[in-house]
């Protein structure tokens, strides 16, 4: 898994802007996990589907947190591509390509962890580059929060053995559809 979303191109200037980024990041994460859950359901990988659904729910709680923090404020309205993520995608947005229909819970958590890790790096960069003290403080809080998520995921992952080589082998040929 590569890390394409290291840093935003410029520093974040205001708390509102950071909240907008944070909200976009979490919203993308929820959408992505739900999409992944759908994909797994379609491919009858229900265990991983349930896991992705859970992850989506957890990320949903983060959205609530950000929404609470931004209550009464008018956040800047940005289109998806107006966010200046490094590499174009939000830290937790670019997870789709790593999916596999035979993936196991361990993989799913690994994938989620990468997203969180990128989020950590994103907020850390914000904290390092921002001039506004409120922004720095908020960003550091977010770093802490995301690090907690990584740790929790790590623990969760330990419950599943790391799949052995060949986990993605399917003895049947693909189906001819059209």
């Amino acid at each position: 898994m590569t890390d394409t979303s290291k840093h935003p191109l410029r520093s974040i200037r205001s708390a509102d802007e950071l909240l907008a980024y944070s909200l976009a990041l979490e919203t993308e994460a929820v959408d992505r996990f739900n999409d992944l859950a759908d994909q797994m359901e379609v491919h009858h990988n229900y265990e991983v589907a349930d896991l992705f659904r859970k992850l989506a729910k957890i990320e949903g709680l983060h959205i609530d947190n950000v929404k609470q923090a931004s209550a009464g404020k008018e956040l800047p309205a940005l289109m998806a591509w107006e966010f200046e993520w490094e590499g174009g995608e939000s830290p937790e947005g670019g997870l789709m390509e790593e999916a596999h229909y035979l993936m196991q819970p361990w993989h799913a958590i690994e994938l989620a962890m990468h997203g969180e890790q990128r989020a950590v790096e994103f907020f850390r960069h914000v904290a390092e580059t921002a001039e506004d003290e409120t922004v720095v403080k908020m960003a550091l809080e977010m770093v802490e929060e995301e690090e907690e998520h990584v740790a929790l995921l790590k623990k969760w992952q330990e419950r599943f053995p790391k799949p052995e080589e060949g986990w993605d082998e399917d003895l049947d040929a693909p189906v001819l559809m059209e």
Partner: peptide, 9 residues
């Protein structure tokens, strides 16, 4: 829900 393989572009 799409029938595309997970990971499909």
């Amino acid at each position: 829900k799409p029938v595309w393989c997970p990971g499909c572009g």
